[in-house]
């Protein structure tokens, strides 16, 4: 159906005329000029007004991820985190481990660990489906985490290939405690600060809360249907005691 007619129909139904210039534009309808008035936007005030301290966010994130069937461990130093990651990778003894590449490795100083476990990093080559489709473990960072729900938030960027968190059986997230926010709303406010235009907002923002699950067979909860069956968060407490 013709775009203009589609919009004109909607507007007429609602008792309005669709602007003639927008209706005539060959490039499509374009952005509307004025915002409709709203009494309020988003979550109720009691929700957005909550102010959790660092410790509360860290503890709640850990608790919630555990409830979802994931696990979270907190390390006081980056070196301790590296030790934890090595232990975990040893336990998993996975034939093929892949990971985010680029800045992530430098930021979390993971080069040595990656080298000793032959982790295949995904830097800036596009479409590296292979070998990532075969990987047993994927190591990623995250841009944000959410204390309310034990969620990690991953942006699609160079060095942050989507498949690393998606295809392997085990997903390990390495993050700084300072990335943990209280609620989803807080995360969106920060993303919006950078800009919601296509230059600043990546093509995909993924919110992952625990391992993949389904209850489609006789309502029997099963883990690891398509995405990872295990999610481990290794948190470096880069803030320390409040």
């Amino acid at each position: 159906m013709n775009e203009q007619a589609f919009f004109q129909n909607i507007a007429r139904r609602l008792g309005r005329e669709f602007p003639a210039d927008a209706a005539a534009s060959p490039a499509g309808v374009g952005l509307p000029a004025e915002e409709p008035e709203r009494a309020f936007v988003g979550a109720p005030d009691f929700w957005t007004a909550r102010q959790w301290g660092h410790r509360e966010r860290l503890e709640n994130f850990t608790l919630e991820l555990g409830r979802l069937g994931g696990s979270a461990r907190v390390y006081a130093t980056l070196a301790a985190l590296h030790g934890g990651l090595e232990t975990l990778l040893q336990e998993l003894s996975a034939p093929l481990v892949c990971g985010w590449g680029g800045e992530f490795i430098a930021d979390m100083q993971l080069q040595n660990v990656f080298d000793s476990f032959a982790v295949v990093p995904w830097d800036d080559e596009p479409d590296m489906a292979e070998p990532f489709t075969r990987a047993d473990v994927g190591v990623t960072g995250c841009d944000f985490a959410i204390a309310d729900t034990g969620t990690v938030v991953l942006l699609n960027e160079s060095g942050q290939g989507r498949l690393v968190s998606l295809l392997p059986t085990v997903h390990i997230v390495v993050l700084r405690a300072s990335r943990i926010r209280t609620s989803m709303g807080e995360v969106w406010r920060e993303i919006a600060l950078r800009g919601l235009d296509p230059v600043h907002l990546p093509s995909t923002v993924i919110f992952i809360s625990g391992p993949s699950r389904s209850s489609d067979i006789e309502n029997d909860l099963t883990i690891g249907v398509h995405g990872p069956a295990a999610v481990h968060a290794l948190i470096w407490d880069d803030v320390g005691l409040p």
Binding site: D123, P126, E157, G161, S203, V205, S212, G227
Partner: peptide, 23 residues
């Protein structure tokens, strides 16, 4: 389903950007 949170929420804005490696 009585879940506190959905496991995967994907927010997709346009196709892959030039700087991105997947999608």
């Amino acid at each position: 389903t009585g879940q506190k949170v959905i496991t995967y929420m994907s927010v997709i804005t346009g196709p892959r950007r030039a700087r991105e490696v997947s999608g």
